[in-house]
């Protein structure tokens, strides 16, 4: 695809912008010195991922991802890390091993996914389709997810509550 073709294709431009945002944010999450900024970049990663989900044909899930994941989960981390302190990294030798793991994992996954070269997504999943599936087919999983969220809320309050000294 030439540059002029690329500039005339909004989908390709959006994909490049979202990919750039996602990857740069992921690098910042891992390497940024401040843990608060790292949490902020995780929310940016969520936004980039939501754009990619929309381009794949899942706007409803992208919206859900923005509201539940970026809006609730990452904000929760962001507010919590403000009161916590940084811990050191692992030894230098182990960091080199991790870098090798990074390279090998990328190569392995790209090889595994190479079978999908040339395939494109041409489906648009509507809100009605997903809700019908969730309510009719995956209702039990939905109930379990709701119970997990409620028990997490109770557990988080219990754990984070200050102990009363008798």
């Amino acid at each position: 695809m030439s540059v002029s073709e690329l500039l005339g294709n909004p989908v390709a431009l959006s994909f490049i912008a979202a990919t750039f945002l996602t990857l740069v944010s992921a690098v910042a999450v891992i390497w940024h010195k401040s843990i608060v900024y790292a949490a902020f970049f995780l929310s940016m990663l969520g936004v980039g991922n939501a754009i990619l989900m929309t381009l794949l044909g899942y706007p409803v899930i992208a919206l859900f991802h923005l509201v539940v994941y970026v809006g609730a989960a990452v904000t929760f981390i962001l507010f919590s890390v403000v009161m916590l302190r940084e811990a050191p990294m692992v030894e230098l030798k182990e960091r080199y091993l991790a870098l090798i793991a990074l390279a090998l994992l990328s190569i392995l996954l790209l090889y595994v996914f190479s079978g999908y070269v040339g395939m494109t997504s041409s489906y648009y999943v509507s809100y009605k389709e997903i809700t019908a599936l969730l309510v009719e087919k995956y209702w039990f999983a939905l109930i379990i997810a709701a119970i997990a969220l409620v028990t997490t809320l109770i557990e988080a309050i219990t754990l984070a509550r200050k102990e009363v000294v008798s």
Binding site: A12, F15, T22, V90, R95, L109, S114, G118, M119, S121
Partner: peptide, 29 residues
């Protein structure tokens, strides 16, 4: 339309970066 492989490439790089972070950090957050 964008090739699915490009999305999978982004996913693979993200996965590798996350694994690197998980291996090198000692801070639970």
């Amino acid at each position: 339309m964008i090739d699915i492989y490009l999305y999978l490439m982004v996913s693979a790089v993200l996965f590798a970066l996350g694994t690197y972070g998980l291996m090198t950090r000692r801070n639970i957050i």
